[in-house]
Write a protein that binds this DNA or RNA. Structure first.
Lengths: 337, 337
DNA sequence: TTGTAAGCGTTATCAG
DNA sequence: CTGATAACGCTTACAA
């Protein structure tokens, strides 16, 4: 049944062109080292036979690898999509492939995926978390390939990092709201799901202490779960019922903010007059042609590009020196605050 | 400088455990075929040495491959993210890896990526287009691996397909609007960028002929470009200026619809009283806790899962029979129509 | 400029 | 249940 059209091999090309395989190999990788005539002859055979080099075999032989693995929590919610786009773009330019998987915010799955990815011997690993299981940490330590942690900036750097301070970004947004004269700012976001959300919350708390009444308006984290707009709506509702005088709400993601916005509307609250709403991430729907959300913009695409760069240039760095690139953040004021 | 911690090989494990490599191989792949005692001894060495099998070498030797390549136009805009999630999830369950790249709606880049991906000898290829360059087509024909085209259902199937009729979905939405008594429906969307948008447009036209005045309210496609909310706002504005009596607008994507919505608001038009707006895709922001957009829901996650399934089960099918799976679509009525 | 020989790290095959 | 041997498709190192 399975009449597997077999792949053409380099040996077949070589035989057909009456040269040795190494010469075919050279035509592909270093054509300038082959006589023009020979090259043309071989190229013709390659085209005629539709030869596609087997990169896996090449990698095995040369002990190299032109692939990079990336692990992100999820694609839905759009925070990390631009980073993957950036990675993909930069890797393509360097003829590298992207191995990709979603961890679903589970460090167990992350460990699993790290192990699985490592079997492919990628040139590098891009992770969206700085907190791993013991086993995962051991794998990362032992494997000897560059690891880049993105979207955070850990205090003690075991690996390269490209990100920003989620704490400071959270702090900055509350300060910004304070400057706009909002004094009783609440926080919506699940700090159980992601460390990044938690750090934004801690930044929020610090800012509340410095600028606000010192009251933390945040309903208790009950369960883990997706930071979707439904949750945003629910938490927003609970929050303003518990603290009816809240005049602004800072949400740990734009998606949550969108939910808050819809709930405010449902309750007949005018935004930003009755209550201001701020998000995080500057997702596409947040812009002026969308809901016009005041938010924090993170250069996600750039994060991806830089992470790729770090891996591609790994040899240039001293192995001991971990790079730490702060891409910063930017507060974008729109209609909701 | 580059003190590359070398990977532990199977041979080293074997030597350390005083067995042959094939026995180590068996412990990893078919542990039940190894005596419990031997197995334990080898497993101990594996753990102690932190051995991670080199899957590339294994694939080469066994002429198998546990990776699947996927090519989508872009991650931003969120139409395909759920499909990638579905793919990733299903592949993980089958211990396969996902090779991923964005083509940016360019068939040139697509061709490029297909060639590059094929070098990895993936077990299958998932594509989001049915229209390829000549060279790409030749590659796909010749490679002998299963190809699944998603998000469309081509008339003549060269490959497997998992999708739905964009034409019918477009048609259905206009009929739905007609049933809600909207009679002068406009279309917003760039049919130059994506064939899928074009098909939705053709469905729109067919429905206009059948139910409407037969007038096609769509501003001319000027340039290619992203179907973002800014474009949605601009096209919406141009449309209602050209046909001021338009009472509903069907947008080829939710992102465009969002832009239309914001533009309507800017112009003081009440939605849906003055004008109804419908989108396509049921992106996350479209739901009831978001902007409450009337739209067409596509089971994107399921598309990804089914595509993976088709590739994983490839051997079960007759090579000549291309599967064609219609996942359908569903009209979701919300606040904007 | 081209070729020979020896791997790269695994698994298939067949034997014991 | 375990092992010896020969691939898998390519590249490195060295020769010619």
């Amino acid at each position: 049944m399975r009449e597997h059209r077999r792949w053409v091999t380099m040996a077949e090309v070589a035989q057909e062109a009456r040269v040795s395989t190494i010469t075919v190999s050279r035509v592909i990788r270093t054509p300038e080292k082959v006589a023009a005539e020979t090259r043309a002859k071989i190229q013709a055979v390659i085209d005629r036979l539709g030869y596609v080099p087997n990169e896996g075999a090449g990698d095995l032989s040369s002990r190299q690898n032109r692939s990079v693995a990336a692990l992100i929590p999820t694609l839905t919610g759009s925070a990390f999509t631009s980073t993957i786009d950036g990675l993909s773009t930069r890797l393509r330019a360097a003829n590298h492939q992207l191995l990709f998987a979603c961890t679903d915010y589970s460090s167990g799955k992350e460990e699993d995926f790290i192990a699985t990815m490592l079997r492919r011997r990628p040139a590098g690993l891009v992770l969206t978390s700085t907190h791993h299981t013991r086993e995962a940490d051991a794998l990362l330590q032992g494997c000897g390939i560059p690891v880049v942690e993105v979207w955070e900036l850990p205090k003690v750097a075991q690996h390269h990092a490209v990100g920003f301070s989620n704490h400071d970004a959270g702090f900055a947004m509350v300060r910004f709201l304070h400057e706009l004269s909002y004094r009783r700012v609440g926080f919506v976001g699940n700090s159980k799901t992601s460390i990044r959300s938690r750090q934004r919350f801690i930044g929020y708390q610090a800012a509340c202490r410095e600028f606000g009444s010192g009251v933390f308006r945040k309903i208790a984290d009950t369960k883990k779960g997706p930071n979707n707009s439904e949750r945003g709506a629910q938490e927003f509702a609970a929050l303003i019922e518990q603290w009816p005088d809240t005049d602004a709400v800072f949400c740990a993601s734009d998606t949550l903010a969108l939910g808050a916005l819809s709930e405010a509307q449902r309750r007949g609250l005018k935004v930003p007059d009755d209550i201001a709403i701020a998000g995080f991430g500057d997702f596409e729907f947040a812009n002026e042609f969308g809901v016009g959300l005041t938010t924090v913009r993170i250069p996600g695409f750039e994060i991806g590009e830089l992470a790729a760069q770090l891996i591609l240039n790994h040899d240039d760095y001293d192995q001991k020196e971990m790079q730490k690139i702060d891409v910063g953040y930017e507060i974008i004021r729109r209609r909701t605050a």
